[in-house]
Design a protein around this nucleic acid. Structure first.
Lengths: 342, 342
DNA sequence: CTGTTAGCGCGTTCAA
DNA sequence: TTGAACGCGCTAACAG
């Protein structure tokens, strides 16, 4: 009972060849009904289970895909992974998780490990735009391993991407704040090394210009996605000759930190100051002062990323389609940016 | 450049045998320095990379471990996975994720898939206590695949577990509420089919008894970990002849729902009513009215679970140690249960 | 319809 | 110190 049984064991028992057993098990048509039934029955009795590893070695397909994210325990990423897992699992694939901790070394290390493990594809959200990563990413593409970026992408030939329209998200948020009557809108942005933050900022800027507002450099502060940084940014902004009366933040955590700091300073949100975040982290709607935020639909993004992978892997020829899917974000308007009487 | 290169390719190039190449690559001592250098150099030049799949088939060790959780996007579980990944990754293992959606079918399906994929171990948080699952779990143990439960366990011979002391968490929370002067403490519990909720409830009950309080069945309501259920439970409790003045909830979400409902009803928290949650979900500390909650230290739990697995896999003999690790929870006292003047 | 052979890529005997 | 041969478990090609 403790032994692993193979097709040879069942072949021996039935005095037939392993090939026949294999055929019977795989529903091959060219086999007699009698022997098929015999094999199936024996397999059942002997508790036979296919060794996917051998199959993988033989076929060159491991039925595993690697997913690389900065941190698995950020709600956005765990949501994406959820979607990927749901979609891929029902298609017979398993998902291998790697965390890059936003570092390039870990990222490269993970890619190499996944490649050595013979994954059938790699779905990732890159840490930042660097050329060092290019080498290995190109290697991946050359090897013929489908590579797909989600959310945080990088332009690379032969690589499909699934993102949301960050520009649109930035534009919508800013337009909303303008509609609410805000006159001086600041922007707390993320790293300049990531496209998503550049795009959100562009959307912010364009919305300002389209409405006849001035774009002021000093209103844009770069932050990391941490609560403290939101508080610090508010401090900086209020030292300006003309402090803003609204913030569009590229991060919900930064938005939260900003709101907490404003409250500490006695500035009333949303009456005197409006705030919009990004990411629609669950906590934004739990707060007594719920925070307006842009939904990135993480689970959907994960599912679509998985689908793009499946399409690619199932595409007939050697020609790899380079697909660029762009989802439309949705701004959830909540209390933090809704003035009572405007 | 597109071909996969094997040890045979480099053997051919050097006019030596593949066995020698293998030895050189693996740092086998019985090999001359000259050939070793030759091999290493050639491997470097030819961009050789080991196919872990072949190694896995040969050795019987895939260096993959499976992790099964109800949902990956709940902060507790994503935290645990983070810990597992961190610990195992640095030990050369990769983590395969499966979601059970709290259903037994999916759980069984996942275990079978993982077993077929020849994982070296399975770390899981079970959906509930059922005998149907027993069969397959026992099979896993019999096959010699290390199985470890974290958080939601089930007593099974040969299976190690890593949990927190849920009884203690329940006791502490209740004691705290008593210390705050609450007289009628209700308990919103989770499914009776899960040990963790039974234990938390036992802790709650014992704390009541130890303090000379009466344990009332009608003060205990079973809920699912959803916001709405917290609100519903509050409605029920306030229909009782003697409504409670405090709630110890086994879920942060339920606690949140309760608080929102209380507020809606005009009941002041914490002045008139105290609430303690469980899980220390990040949002509990973000709220303006921060929620007291019991920390389960998910990342640490994940790391320890991984360590127990590593110990087990590295234990010399065939004797599998059955280890029971119990972590101590920590109650974070916040505004939702701190009366201003008591 | 079925059996034989071969090979996926690797490490590990057993000889030499 | 090195090479030849084998096996991990499976499927595909080629015979018959």
């Amino acid at each position: 009972m403790k032994e692993k049984i193979t097709i040879y064991d069942i072949a021996a028992k039935l005095n037939i060849s392993a090939a026949t057993v294999s055929r019977a098990l795989n529903g091959n048509t060219k086999i007699s009904d009698t022997t098929r039934k015999l094999v199936l029955e024996a397999a059942e009795n002997m508790n036979y289970e296919q060794n996917k590893l051998a199959l993988a070695l033989k076929s060159g397909k491991s039925k595993n895909v690697g997913v690389i994210v900065p941190h698995i325990d950020r709600s956005f990423f765990s949501g994406v992974i959820r979607g990927i897992e749901e979609e891929l699992n029902s298609n017979g694939y398993r998902v291998i998780i790697c965390q890059s901790y936003d570092t390039e070394e870990k990222e490269i290390e993970s890619i190499n490990a996944l490649l050595n493990a013979q994954v059938d594809g790699i779905l990732m959200s890159i840490s930042n735009l660097t050329s060092d990563l290019d080498y290995i990413l190109n290697k991946t593409v050359r090897k013929g391993v489908p590579l797909i970026f989600f959310d945080r992408k990088q332009d690379l030939k032969g690589v499909s991407t699934v993102t949301i329209n960050d520009y649109e998200g930035g534009y919508q948020s800013t337009q909303h704040l303008i509609n609410e009557g805000c006159k001086n809108i600041a922007h707390l942005r993320g790293s300049k090394r990531l496209e998503i933050y550049n795009d959100r900022c562009k959307g912010y800027k364009q919305a300002l210009l389209d409405n006849g507002f001035e774009f002021k450099e000093e209103y844009v502060i770069e932050t990391k996605s941490k609560i403290d940084e939101g508080a610090e940014a508010v401090q900086k902004l209020f030292k300006l000759p003309t402090p803003p009366d609204a913030i569009f933040s590229s991060s919900d955590f930064v938005a939260l930190g900003a709101i907490k700091e404003l409250k500490k300073m006695g500035v009333k949100v949303p009456e005197e100051f409006s705030v919009v975040g990004f990411g629609n982290d669950p906590f934004t709607q739990f707060m007594e002062l719920s925070i307006s935020s842009v939904d990135q639909f993480p689970t959907e993004m994960g599912k679509i990323t998985a689908k793009v992978f499946l399409e690619q892997i199932n595409s007939p020829g050697e020609i790899k389609i380079e697909k660029k899917v762009v989802l439309t974000p949705k701004l959830w308007i909540r209390k933090s940016s809704t003035k009572k009487d405007v």
